[in-house]
Design a protein around this nucleic acid. Structure first.
Lengths: 181, 181
DNA sequence: CGTTGCACTGCAACTCGTTGCATAGGATGC
DNA sequence: GCATCCTATGCAACGAGTTGCAGTGCAACG
C-alpha cells in the first residue's frame, strides 16, 4: 500500500514524530485514510532503514523522548518518482494523496495520471448506465429483490459520477495555474 | 470483514460452487467488491464448519467435480441477524450488500441502518463544508500547495454529497413499497 | 490521594487477503 | 501435434493491518 508515500507527503509538509503522525492521520488526512500508531511506527522504521527519512531524537522535560522524522534526499527522490509513476490499481484515496503531494513533485505528471483514471471511471459509469437501461427500464415499478438490486446499481452510478466530476474539477484547476497568467 | 455475508446473499440468490462465486464477484457483485478464489474457498470452508451452508458434491463428465453450496437454516438465521444488526463501522460497500440482501431479512431494519449512516455522513459533510468556508474563502485565487489541499477537500465533499444523495434515494424507495398500495 | 488521561514508543499474536504453485482433463488455437 | 486456456479445487508462504499489552512520568479530576 501507499502508506509510505502518504507519510512522505505529510512529513514533507511538516516534520514530526510517529505519535504526531498518528494524530494527523486521525484528523486532516485521516478523514479519508486510517492508520494505527503501530502501523506508522513500523513503516517509519522501514523508511528509515531505506534512507527515506532521518531521525532526530528530541529529549523533552516531563515527557518521553520524541523521535522527530524528517524527509531525506532519498525520500524526496522516492516521492518524486512515485508521483510521476502511473498506477492503474490506485483508488481515489491514493490519488488524493498524489494530488495533495503534487507540490513536492511534478504537478503535470499527476494531472496525466488523473486523466488516465478519469477515463477508466467514465468507462465504468457507461457500463453501469447501460445495465440500468437494459435491466431496469421502468424503475418506478420495481419491488422486492429487483428493487434492491437496482438501488445498489444506483449507488455505483452515483459514486462513479461523483468521481468523474471531481477529476474534472481537479484537472481544470491543475491545467490553469493562476500564477502563470 | 463481511465477505461471509456477501457470500450468504449471493448464495441466497442462487446456489453455486466456489468457482462460480469467484466469477460472480468478478462481475455483478465484484464491480464494487473484489475477492480471489482463495479467499472464497477458505471462507466457504469456514462457513460449512459453522453450519451456514450445505455442500453437495456434483460429479461432472469431462470436468473436475463441483462442490455446490446452498444456504442452510443456520445461514439464513445468521443473515437475518446480520441484516438487522447496526454496524457503525460499515462502509458503503457493506451497506450495499445489506441493501441487496434486504429481501432475505427485514427491509425495515435495513432502512433503519441506512438512516443512521445517512446522519453520520451528513454530519461529516457539514464539517467539510465548514472547513471549506473557513480555510478556503477564495478558492479561485489559490495556487500551489494550498490549491492541492483544497482539491482534496473538494473530493471529500463530493464523495459525502454523493453518499447522502444515494441514501436518500434508497430510503425513499424502501419507505414507499409499490406493492403495499 | 487514588484514578483517569495524555504523551510516547514498542513487542507479540492474530486476522484478512494476495501471490505462487500444483494438479488434472478436456477444448480450442495455430 | 504442441501450447495455451478453461473448469475446479486446494496448500504454503507472505504482507499488510489490527488488537492487546506493557512501561514511564506528568497533570488534572474529584
Amino acid at each position: 500500500m501507499a502508506l509510505e508515500h502518504a507519510i512522505l507527503v505529510s512529513l514533507s509538509e511538516r516534520a514530526g514524530s510517529g505519535y504526531e503522525l498518528t494524530r494527523r492521520f486521525e484528523k486532516s488526512i485521516g478523514l479519508f485514510w486510517s492508520a494505527t500508531h503501530q502501523q506508522i511506527y513500523r513503516v517509519l522504521k522501514r523508511m528509515e532503514e531505506a534512507g527515506w527519512v532521518a531521525v532526530d531524537v528530541v529529549a523533552q522535560s516531563g515527557r518521553p523522548d520524541k523521535k522527530v522524522y524528517t524527509v531525506s534526499d532519498g525520500g524526496r527522490a522516492e516521492l518524486v518518482r512515485w508521483l510521476a509513476e502511473p498506477d492503474p490499481s490506485a483508488g481515489p484515496v491514493e490519488l488524493a494523496v498524489k494530488i495533495r503531494g503534487a507540490t513536492f513533485g511534478d504537478p503535470a505528471k499527476v494531472a496525466e495520471e488523473i486523466v488516465r483514471h478519469r477515463a477508466h471511471h467514465a468507462e465504468r459509469l457507461d457500463v453501469y448506465r447501460q445495465i440500468e437501461k437494459r435491466d431496469f427500464p421502468a424503475p418506478a415499478a420495481l419491488t422486492g429483490r429487483h428493487l434492491h438490486q437496482y438501488l445498489v446499481l444506483r449507488g455505483g452510478i452515483r459514486v462513479e459520477e461523483g468521481q468523474v466530476e471531481w477529476f474534472d474539477e481537479v484537472l481544470a484547476a491543475l491545467h490553469h495555474p493562476k500564477d502563470a497568467r
